[in-house]
């Protein structure tokens, strides 16, 4: 019984949140990785692209609520997802035309693209804060829980409850669908294969008649769609606050680099690696150990390796270790 309680405790505070956060990071890292694969630079505006998508959802959700439109028990934000994706894609493509296309045409070095992307990042931040302000906005409505902690306890007669939020299960479901769609596109369609070919060997792709402009626009479209989805899911799961998305940039990059920049499968795995390390290292294992250890060995401290304020440090630490040991990523991306 003690062991089951310990497991449920771990499930409630580590595994369920880890899966949800990992999915969100994976979606975000996939977007970064795609842009890296095709345009060959790290897009620092990706965090705020997520924020923009989430912002569109916030605005449309309150509009829908005021019109009395609802898809309960699902959150209204899900209804706005296609519109948020469309809006984000349009914005990102507009930035490509206004900013990046010029640097491509003069064949600037990747570092110039990175600076340009920080410029885009600040324009987006300004835009977002100008429209909705810097404060928290609640994105969630509809039912809160799929599995309620209290009911779970009562049904199984345990001390510990397990709760699974609607947003968490939606995150997992949508991530699975999005990833399957993405991989189907990249591996089964002609255009998707052309994108992979372009990412592999740009010159040969051009010689084969693959149009670079089409590939680039497609990459932005996919990356923006993934960013908007990740942004909304994160906002639903936690809360929508513009600055949070900037702070997600570091874990996102860490996830993409762990998996090997430009490698979609790696980005997916990297998202979960980073999320679980972050949660495990900042989780206080005191109560978990209390269930498992005999009474006289019970820990007195929190048994927390690092306080939650330092969760960025974990992404950073993972990043540094990977860069030191295997800079191309544990899933062997081809960046050098």
């Amino acid at each position: 019984m003690e062991a089951i309680n310990a497991l449920v405790l771990l499930g409630n505070y580590v595994i369920v949140p880890g899966i949800a956060y990992g999915s969100q990071l994976a979606l975000a890292a996939l977007g970064v990785s795609l842009i890296y694969g095709i345009l060959r630079f790290s897009n620092f505006a990706h965090g705020d692209t997520m924020a923009f998508g989430a912002m569109v959802a916030v605005l449309l959700t309150s509009l829908a609520q005021s019109l009395g439109i609802s898809i309960a028990p699902f959150p209204t934000a899900m209804l706005t997802l296609p519109f948020a994706i469309a809006g984000t894609v349009l914005l990102v493509i507009a930035f490509d035309f206004a900013v990046y296309r010029h640097f491509r045409s003069i064949r600037s070095s990747p570092v110039v693209f990175v600076i340009a992307s920080t410029g885009v990042m600040f324009v987006m931040q300004g835009l977002i804060r100008f429209i909705v302000g810097p404060r928290d906005r609640d994105l969630g409505d509809g039912a809160r829980f799929v599995v309620n902690a209290r009911e779970f306890k009562a049904a199984l007669g345990l001390e510990q409850g397990l709760s699974i939020k609607v947003s968490q299960s939606l995150t997992l479901g949508i991530t699975i669908i999005a990833v399957l769609l993405l991989f189907w596109f990249l591996h089964r369609t002609r255009t998707g294969k052309a994108m992979r070919a372009f990412s592999d060997n740009e010159d040969l792709a051009r010689l084969s008649g693959i149009n670079p402009q089409t590939v680039v626009i497609l990459a932005w479209t996919l990356s923006a769609a993934l960013a908007a989805t990740a942004g909304i899911l994160y906002g639903l799961d936690k809360t929508f606050k513009p600055i949070i998305y900037f702070q997600l940039l570091l874990p996102t990059f860490a996830a993409a680099i762990v998996g090997g920049l430009g490698n979609p499968i790696g980005a997916l795995a990297g998202g979960f690696v980073v999320a679980f390390s972050e949660i495990c290292i900042t989780y206080a294992f005191k109560r978990f150990l209390a269930y498992l250890l005999p009474e006289n060995l019970e820990p007195t401290g929190l048994v927390q390796l690092l306080s939650t304020e330092y969760k960025f440090a974990i992404s950073f630490f993972i990043l540094v270790v990977v860069l030191l040991i295997r800079p191309t990523g544990i899933f062997a991306g081809r960046s050098s």
Partner: peptide, 11 residues
């Protein structure tokens, strides 16, 4: 057929 880098390695 270019001399080097004449295939798509991950395809």
């Amino acid at each position: 057929v270019p001399q080097v880098e004449n295939v798509f390695p991950s395809l």
